[in-house]
Design a protein around this nucleic acid. Structure first.
Lengths: 152, 152
DNA sequence: CTTGAAAAGAACTGCCT
DNA sequence: AGGCAGTTCTTTTCAAG
């Protein structure tokens, strides 16, 4: 783990909100010069704390109006190959995230679909057909608020 | 909704993977010139499909080794003010996402903590103290794979 | 759509406190 | 560590085909 001071934390916070700002502009808000800010960002990147920049896509504007959280219990526990299951899940294009979890369910999936009938197709023909899939629980997302976590 | 052609989709896919690449470099991989690529990115941004750039932070390297998914049922449904609940949830720094969902649970939270005993503190003193919080279900994340969704 | 070019700005480097 | 000055590269905006 890397040692972070207060300024590093402010940089991470700010970049988590908006990574399109320049090192110079960011530094100005912190009372730091452009090279000093840039060197800190480079150090945080090399330490692995900053892991790449990504654009956020608006799923709704792309025609994917439905987001669903699925909890999946594996059937015949102990006889199911987790790698097989994960490989099969990853091959479903509508799946955005796959999380192996501990608790009532074994996996949590975030799935997007164009609408509810499209989701039904994904659920019946893709999810239920997964090797080892047992009980499935679904939560349709009504609204979502993304925060930044303990650093935000 | 905006009309997207194949090249637009490739641009979105590529930027969702890595937003740090320049318009020129991206265009080269697609057989497009720098200005053409840049105009498409601008158009996608103005259409609201591209919603800002963000850095990904490595929670583990920042000292947050535990990620937990919570499902929360509201007690005394109908008597609970959703806005009050959401405001209180958003004030908990360890909460990364708040999703209002339809299904067995009313809300799904993604929570990070330094370790399990830190998570217990958050659960007991923060989550259980939420106004209207009833039954709580927890899934500790073992491993996570983020995909890009139907466009990736 | 393309190429070419120009101006502005951001990224990066080396040196100095 | 930080700042300053300079170089290189990208971004952004043209004009013209």
């Amino acid at each position: 783990m890397i040692e972070l001071d207060d300024i590093d934390r402010q940089i991470l916070r700010s970049l988590a909100r908006d990574a399109s700002q320049s090192a110079g502009a960011l530094g100005r808000t912190l009372g730091l010069s452009q090279p000093a800010t840039w060197r800190r960002i480079k150090r945080l990147t090399e330490a692995g704390v900053l892991r790449g920049r990504r654009v956020r896509l608006d799923a709704a504007r792309l025609g994917f109006g439905v987001t669903v959280f699925l909890g999946i219990k594996l059937a015949r526990k102990g006889h199911v190959n987790l790698e097989d299951f994960e490989r099969a899940v990853s091959a479903i294009p509508e799946v955005q995230t796959v999380e192996h979890v501990l608790g009532v369910y074994d996996y949590r999936l975030r799935v997007v679909a164009r609408d509810l009938s499209d989701f039904e197709r994904v659920l019946r023909r893709r999810i239920m057909a997964l090797p080892g899939a047992g009980e499935v629980d679904a939560n349709v997302v009504l609204s979502e608020e993304r925060r930044l976590g303990p650093l935000g």
